[in-house]
Simulated assay, not measured.
Amino acid sequence: MVKINGVKVQTEGRKPWADAPPEPIPGQRRKRNGIYPGWDSPEKIQQCLHCTNPDCSGRCPSKSRKKVGRPRIPMPEDFPEKEKRLRYHELIDHYGVNTTVITRWKKELRGKGEK
């Protein structure tokens, strides 16, 4: 029961997911995330019900994904001295890394020198 401008108004809430069957419909395919099409997980439903965003559109943006890939090889402590004495390909052979790693390490050294 809600009072609007002095008038009592009866409101009724409806949970659209309440009608969803507990088991999947035979022949219905699952999405890659394991949720059946058109169904949200109980966690997403609770998050939506307790949303505090004033401009809520009913669809929360997904979390940003972390960059997946190889971890960057950190620059060795002796690289500044070796970089002065050895040539580019000698550095590659000495550290056993590819050209892009040596190039990145050289850029990091220049960046540290400027600061």
Rank of each mutant, 00 (worst) to 15 (best):
Glu12Val: 15
Glu12Asn: 13
Glu12His: 13
Glu12Gln: 14
Gly13His: 06
Arg14Gln: 09
Arg14Trp: 08
Arg14Thr: 05
Arg14Pro: 00
Lys15Glu: 04
Pro16Glu: 02
Trp17His: 07
Trp17Cys: 04
Ala18Thr: 03
Ala18Phe: 03
Asp19Asn: 06
Ala20Gly: 04
Pro21Arg: 12
Pro21Asp: 13
Pro22Tyr: 09
Pro22Trp: 05
Pro22His: 07
Glu23Lys: 13
Glu23Val: 13
Glu23Met: 14
Glu23Arg: 13
Pro24Leu: 15
Pro24Ala: 14
Ile25Arg: 14
Ile25Tyr: 08
Pro26His: 08
Pro26Phe: 04
Gly27Gln: 08
Gly27Ala: 09
Gln28Arg: 04
Gln28Phe: 01
Gln28Lys: 03
Gln28Trp: 02
Arg29Met: 14
Asn33Tyr: 02
Gly34Ile: 14
Gly34Met: 12
Ile35Ser: 00
Ile35Lys: 05
Ile35Arg: 05
Ile35Ala: 03
Ile35Glu: 01
Tyr36Lys: 05
Tyr36Asp: 01
Tyr36Leu: 08
Gly38His: 02
Gly38Arg: 00
Gly38Glu: 02
Trp39Met: 03
Asp40Tyr: 10
Asp40Lys: 12
Ser41Ile: 03
Ser41Ala: 14
Ser41Asp: 05
Pro42Arg: 14
Pro42Glu: 06
Glu43Ile: 11
Glu43Lys: 10
Glu43Cys: 09
Glu43Ala: 11
